[in-house]
Amino acid sequence: MTTTDLQAGFDETIAHEWRVEPRDWMPDGYRRTLVRQVAQHAHSEIIGMQPEGGWLTRAPSLRRKQVLMAKVQDEAGHGLYLYSAAETLGVDRDDLTQQLVDSRQKYSSIFNYPALSYADVGTIGWLVDGAAICNQVPLCRSSYGPYARAMIRVCKEESFHQRQGYELLMTMMNGTDAQRAMVQESVDRFWWPSLMMFGPPDADSPNTEQSMAWGIKRHTNDELRQRFVDMSVPQAAALGVTLPDPDLAWNDDRGAHDFGEPDWSEFAAVVRGDGPCNVQRVAHRRAAHEDGAWVREAATAFAAKQAAS
């Protein structure tokens, strides 16, 4: 078959909303875009364990420790589903890890913010996992089969993440004034970075159009951001917290909320590596990877010995 035939077969698959599977022919650009997106997504799950991970030993009760442990373990699982999907595109898992610890591949900017108070565990579950859900639900229909299937598994688990966070915040809001203030302070810090999780405005997102044509992306950044705002407003009201945006207001004509512009220069700085925790996050991941080398070596030696005997 000629490349034209192959391209026509691929185009037909996309046009019919069929799924592209690993051994199918695909254009280089499609493969490259997917590798970048899936790897970046996998890295985000893995790095995403760190902000909350610091609270594992400090959560206030056995129940909260148990829940947080299960949540953080899920994020590790999400990373592994996604590395598995990335690997079907012909890349090597070790190589992806190396690119992460060498800062040659990115992860979601949100995880470069610190979890300073215990309320942040709740806010991360509510807003950060909530924004992730907004992003991920449409990806269950991604044109690349292994990615779509990984997203279905991830989405099933994310609902628990968001609910445990919201429940934690509700509990604190029913507590003392100091606890309520702690929740509000946390929401104030995480609201804008959560909006930035959807990426730059559509006008500054040159790859969106191609990704949507390929069925890798299903909605634009601004569409998803709007959906997230509209979902969050009644949740904030039920919780009794204020979202830190003076421009936030219902717009009857649009049937949606108007809201302020995130500080895109801050977003650019965090993406560039100048966020509050970029260096710490990557250094921690590198240390965990390197400190675990002897375990991997021992397991290999053991397996070789067993196979020989």
Partner: peptide, 20 residues
């Protein structure tokens, strides 16, 4: 089929598969 993983041997593959 649910996905893949890397393991040093069969036993580790099963344990990791259970956990993941």
């Amino acid at each position: 089929h649910v996905g893949s993983l890397h393991a040093a041997d069969d036993e580790m593959a099963l344990r990791h598969a259970r956990d993941v």
